[in-house]
Every structure is written in structure tokens, then in C-alpha cells.
Computed example of a mutant assay.
Amino acid sequence: MSEQFKAFWITETEPKKYSREVVERGIDDLPAGDLLVRVRYSSLNFKDALSSVGNKGVTRKFPHTPGIDAAGEVVSCADGRFQPGDQVLVTGHDLGMNTAGGFGQYIRVPSSWALPLPAGLTLAESMILGTAGLTAGLSVQALVGAGVVADAGDILVTGATGGVGSLAVAILAAAGYRVVASTGKQSEHDFLKSLGAAEVISREAVTENCERPMLSERWAGAVDCVGGTTLAAVLKATCAGGSVACCGLVGSPDLPINVFPFILRGVSLFGIDSAECDDQRRARVWTNLAGEWRPARLGELSREVGLDGLGAEIDKMLKGESHGRVLVNLDL
């Protein structure tokens, strides 16, 4: 009998009905891979919440352990890329989607999926950032690469209370940008200002008059976590030569837009894919997140739960009631 460990387990009890529980699994039950990691921390992301309710666009086969993020110590590495005891993090690829994920105390994955823990971050801090931080960092990297400098003007972040949005606000503020955060939650204005937002506006302020072909120039750049009508309105209000990073679809996957922002103002739209971005970009962003882009008061961006507390946090996220980051401590 192989060594046992705790894991968050999603089971399809009958067609389109799913149960959630904490179970014991054996290490020998994990999929094949070069790298075995003892997971200390993970984090809750929207993909994890979708997987937990049986979204087949995220996870095809059940039972399953979600968790697209994991950080911990190497137990063994068959190809010698890492040594036992090395601290590593894994984000993206297929972790937690169709490969047993970070909501279990052990994962086994290809060693190419892992990165050494960046200097300057603890395991817990790396998971407060996690995929959300990587996505936000890739978004900021896209704006910087397009020439959107800190004194260019206001940078808008939509869906700003979510995991990606809140970290985008904090990262941009740390990098010296003037950030305008958009949210539909009046109660979260103080939270967003504590992250570094210079101004907080409503969702309606972003989408006002969005049926018009173009809107007055307002944003030097933007990180959009919403999609749909919101993204269309952001593009129509982006200044000439400005750039928008698109990294979410909580509002809608559709984009009701004309070509005017692109051909009349030269606006650029960047799609952000954190799951399959190349290793060099991934490593570069993590270096920045541990250094000059490190959010102020990083530890205050999250609340910590064990596997037993995950169900309630998943329900909050699916209802749109979550804010900031949920840090999952696998040793609680």
C-alpha cells in the first residue's frame, strides 16, 4: 500500500451532479511524471471552482482533484532537473484540469511544468500570487512591451476585486502607474484603494454610452478581466496608441465591437494565456513579481483556508461574492 495523503475530491454521483469531500489517496494513484512534489500551499482560482461543479470545458473526467496552482518541496525527480528538498511552484499547463492538482498534498507532474521558487518569495506568498498573479503579470508585461509607460495616463483594471483584477491593481501600483479600478461592489472601494488604486469607479461608469461607435479617449491602457460589453467599451475609450490586455470572461466570452478603435486610434488588444505561455516569459514575470512588481502588503491580499474550508470559498466564488485571493494551506 502506497503512502496516503489528503486530497479534495470531486465525484460525479449521477449525470450532471457532483459531490465534494476530503478523502485519502495513495501516492501510487497519481499520474505518471518525472517530478513528485509535497504540496504545502495552493490557491483557489475560477477554473478550480468550475472544475468542482463538473464543467467539462475545464475537466473532462471525474473523480478528480482540482487545483491549478501548487507550491512545495521536491520529493523525487527522475530526470535530475530538481533535487529532493528543492522548493518549486507549478502553475498552469494541465495541473488541476485533467491532471490531479494542488488541492492534494502530493502532485506528480512532468518536471518541465515546475519552476524554482523565485528568490524573495515564500511558498505561501508564491501561492497568494499563483496563476492570478502570473496572469496579471503577463498583462502588465504586455502593456509595458507595447510602450505604455507609467506617466502615459490612467490605466484601467476591470473586474478589480477578483483574483486577477486585485493583483493587477497592486502590481500596476507597485510599478508606478496611476490605476483606476472598476467594480460593481460599492463595499470594496476601500479594499481597492488599499491595494494602490488612485480611483475606484463603477462598472456602469465604464460601459456608459457603450452603444456608440467610439467613446472619448480616457485610458492609456487597461487590464480587462470581464470581457463582453465591458471590454468593447474599454477599447472604444482607449487613447490613441494605447493597449488593452484581455485576460478574463466573467462578463461574457463575446466581444461586440467594431474596428474603429483599431484603425482610427491604433489601439492594440493583447490576449493573455497564462496556462501555456513559454517558459522564458513565465520565468521573467515571476522574477518581476518577486522583485519590482511585488505588490505592497502582499500578505493582506488573501485569506487562508484548509481543504475542509474550500467548499464554502468555492460557493462564494461561483456566486460572485469572493474578493482577493484564497490561500489553501495543505497542512491545516
Rank of each mutant, 00 (worst) to 15 (best):
G271K: 04
G251A: 09
S274F: 00
D273V: 06
V250T: 15
V267R: 00
E276I: 15
S268Y: 06
S268F: 03
S252Y: 04
F270Q: 07
V244Y: 06
C239K: 13
D278W: 11
G242C: 05
G251F: 01
L269N: 05
G266V: 02
P256V: 07
N258M: 04
V244S: 08
I257K: 00
P253L: 09
T238S: 05
E276R: 13
G241W: 08
L264F: 09
V244N: 01
I272K: 10
S252W: 03
P253R: 11
S252D: 14
F270H: 15
D273S: 07
F260M: 08
L269C: 11
C239V: 04
D278P: 08
D273K: 02
F262D: 02
F260G: 01
D273Q: 06
G251N: 09
C247L: 07
F262S: 03
D254V: 02
I257C: 04
T238H: 00
I272N: 08
A275F: 13
F260K: 11
F260R: 08
C239Y: 03
S268I: 09
I263D: 03
C246F: 15
D254G: 02
V259E: 11
C247F: 14
G241S: 04
G266F: 05
G248C: 07
A275L: 10
T238M: 00
L249R: 06
S268A: 14
P256Y: 01
S268T: 12
A245L: 10
